[in-house]
Amino acid sequence: MASSLVIGIIFLVLGLGLRYWINRRKFYRRSPTGAEGFSSYEKSVIVKTSERLGKWIAYALIIFGLLSLWVYSREKKEIASSTTEIQNPQ
């Protein structure tokens, strides 16, 4: 039960951290006019592709983290309801 909570928090933090890091890099790569600056076309393609892939990985981590937290909450409710049934049999 607690493993779902720990895994959920870790994956959620990793996903949000990855998104923040990618967006921060993109922000600091911009010139005062708002255009992104690259030293070559190849570097531009590689960086943009890797950032796109990184964002998809971050989304997957966030979704997995949220699902793990949801599983944890469902397990907690199930244990609470079964404990109540044991204490108050009808």
Rank of each mutant, 00 (worst) to 15 (best):
T84E: 12
M1V: 10
V45F: 03
P89E: 01
A80C: 02
S73R: 13
L5S: 07
Y59R: 05
A80Q: 07
L61D: 00
V47G: 01
S82D: 08
P89N: 00
L61F: 04
Y59P: 00
L61V: 00
A2C: 06
W56Y: 13
I9N: 06
I22L: 10
K55F: 12
R74E: 14
S39Q: 07
Y72V: 02
E75R: 09
I57Y: 03
N23W: 13
G34T: 01
T84K: 15
F38P: 02
E85V: 06
I7R: 08
R25G: 14
I86L: 13
Y20K: 10
R30P: 02
V45C: 02
S31Y: 05
L53I: 05
T33G: 13
L61Q: 03
W56H: 09
A35D: 10
R74G: 11
I10Q: 05
M1C: 13
Q90C: 10
Q87C: 09
W70N: 08
S44T: 02
S82E: 10
R19A: 10
Q90S: 14
S39K: 11
I46W: 06
L53R: 07
A58S: 04
E42W: 08
V71A: 12
A80K: 11
T33R: 13
W56K: 06
G37V: 13
S68C: 09
A2I: 15
S4I: 04
G15H: 04
R52P: 05
L66Q: 07
E85A: 15
L18F: 07
I46Q: 06
E51H: 02
P32L: 01
G54S: 00
P32H: 02
S39I: 06
G34V: 01
K26I: 12
G15R: 04
F64E: 03
N88T: 15
V47M: 02
F38D: 03
S31V: 02
S68Q: 15
T83M: 14
A35I: 04
I62H: 04
E75Q: 15
S3F: 12
E75L: 12
Y72Q: 11
E78T: 13
A58W: 00
K55T: 08
Y72P: 01
F64M: 06
K55D: 09
S50R: 09
E75P: 08
S81P: 04
S44F: 05
I22K: 05
G37S: 12
R25C: 12
I57H: 02
W21I: 10
I7T: 15
S68Y: 07
S4C: 13
G54N: 00
K48T: 08
T83H: 12
G54I: 00
S68E: 13
F27I: 07
